[in-house]
Design a protein around this nucleic acid. Structure first.
Lengths: 173, 173
DNA sequence: GTGTATTTTCTGAAATTTCAGAAATTTGTC
DNA sequence: GACAAATTTCTGAAATTTCAGAAAATACAC
């Protein structure tokens, strides 16, 4: 496989994007590569195409698997693993949402919960009130994110596409 | 002003949270401090309470102002600035959303747009299709985020609280 | 089992980010 | 204007993160 100039451009941009989102550049680039690739690739090929160290590719692919953004496949008579990306962008978004919920929001809910308990324990009304408000926000975010996992990708996509209309409707109630 | 143990605990936790979200620990801690503070604080007081360098506090406060998460106020006969945080957590969330949209999503939409043009130019059907799908996702996220800015905080909150029910409804269509 | 292809883990170097202290600038008073 | 208080910017040190190369572990053929 050879990368076209256009593909390389996307991969580089996607890498830049990643860094703004807290994802290492090389990890994001590998994801971008698999997203535009027409067929599954081996780790070795990816090293070659993006000029990354084999170790780096190995670690990054594992991270991407953790986010369920890529699949690894085996082929008969070939002991290497072949990787391909989830190609449905809505499914991709849903999985990112789920992982971020798990790693970030869930922890926050628990942390604030603890602080709320401590504030009540100490009879600190003001702080308790603040913690309660924060708790409502975090718990709601958590609930929405969890709900999004219950339905299929098509529902998720339609909900997003209708998003602004739903808001307009709610504003009228 | 003196910080209670509970408040200090929250501030530290909030700082930890920040780092996971790509926000410097000291910046997040300052925000947490202002969120739990009962009255506006000066930069100097914040240095004292959190044991941070004056310069650091200055930079971080400016960053928080950039996110519209804090307000600075002046008082007659006092040349110092007094800071307080937005205390409505839903308004807070809305502003974070808006800033993230501006800084992260907006740039991505443009980057993918460019790549899409390049792919079409080069007659690269496969890549163009992938870029189109990605574009739909990013543009939709952008649209929803923009829409959320059009209504007041109460609408935003109600929409979030109804989120899972709205999803269930859409799933039935 | 042995040997080889492939992947993963370990280690440290390079790059980046965070943040304190010093210097410079701004703001407001007189 | 001169002066003092407050804030911001500059600089580099410390901490963290990213990532390459080497070593170790694993998987599979024979």
């Amino acid at each position: 496989m050879q990368l076209s100039e256009t593909q390389m451009k996307f991969i580089r941009r996607w890498g830049d994007m990643g860094t703004r989102w807290g994802i290492p550049r090389s990890t994001a680039m590998l994801h971008g590569l698999l997203y535009v690739a027409q067929s599954p690739l081996t780790a070795e090929e990816m090293c070659e195409l993006l000029q990354l160290a084999r170790s780096n590719v190995s670690t990054s692919l594992k991270e991407l698997e953790g986010y369920n953004l890529i699949y690894r496949e085996s082929r008969a008579g070939d002991r290497r693993s072949f990787y391909r990306a989830e190609s449905d962008v809505w499914e991709m978004a849903r999985r990112i949402l789920e992982e971020r919920r798990r790693r970030e929001t869930a922890g926050a809910v628990q942390a604030v919960e603890e602080c709320l308990d401590a504030a009540r324990e100490a009879g600190d009304e003001h702080t308790a009130a603040r913690m309660e408000a924060m708790q409502e926000l975090l718990q709601t975010a958590e609930n929405v994110a969890t709900a999004a996992q219950r339905y299929n990708t098509s529902v998720f996509r339609r909900a997003a596409l209708m998003g602004s209309k739903v808001l307009a409707l709610i504003a009228k109630i």
